[in-house]
Amino acid sequence: MSLKRLGGAPVGLTVPALVALTFLIVPVVAVVLRVPWSTFLSDISSSGARDSLRLSVVTSLIAAGLCLLFGVPLAWILARVVFPGRSLVRALVTLPLVLPPVVGGVALLLALGRRGLVGQWLDLWFGLTIPFTQTAVVLAQTFVALPFLVISVEGAFRASDERYDDAAATLGASRWHTFRRVTLPLALPGIVSGAVLSWARALGEFGATITFAGNFPGTTRTMPIEVYLALNSDPDAAIALSMILIAVSIGVLALLRERWLTGLST
């Protein structure tokens, strides 16, 4: 109804919007068209492909969980607490977004590697070495995915009216209680979409993973690394594997959109 009153979508917006949509979709369509259907099943059911898909799904889910666990509190602090240097902290949080992932991987090595800033003590005191393990995969994914969660959740906290917090406080609720019963439920759609975004980013993570965690079948070879290596030896298999990654992502995103995002935001 409001569309009628306001008039149709102006050409100045529709045309660039269509260009953007085409630009995003055509490469994906090109992959779908090139899928070698005759060998598709054998390509995707190889044990290597199954191992790396399982590894990718498990590690990306753990990474998304870690993002939630640590990112939501950080987002709340950034949205609700005024402290000196807040804009600097916000800029630091987004740093992994602009850093090339490979550089992120090197940074993680320098911090958590066997001779890293922190890693050397982990090795010395606990005999813990992180590189080349699944822990390293999860950490690399969390490093690149966390900013996505923090940014979208901080936006959600800011968008929800702070006066509800005030009202709860006047009624005698502690700040922790207010956070759990008022702030969190109000921001839930933003938190869910932030979690989905960070999960998707973790699933597709390549550069930081191969640099920090290395690549070994079954241990650290995630789906994107499998695709990259297959490109060298068997491009058809690489396309088939990319198709799996595309299908999994579209499936999960569509499912979540159905179940959560629309339901909560209306």
Binding site: L110, R114, R115, P131, I210, N215, F216, T220
Partner: peptide, 19 residues
């Protein structure tokens, strides 16, 4: 090996970094 790197320069950097 503990890792199969994508190219020889990555092998070298894992070694020079002491990883």
């Amino acid at each position: 090996p503990v890792s199969l790197e994508a190219d020889v320069k990555s092998v070298l950097s894992k070694v020079t970094l002491g990883e």
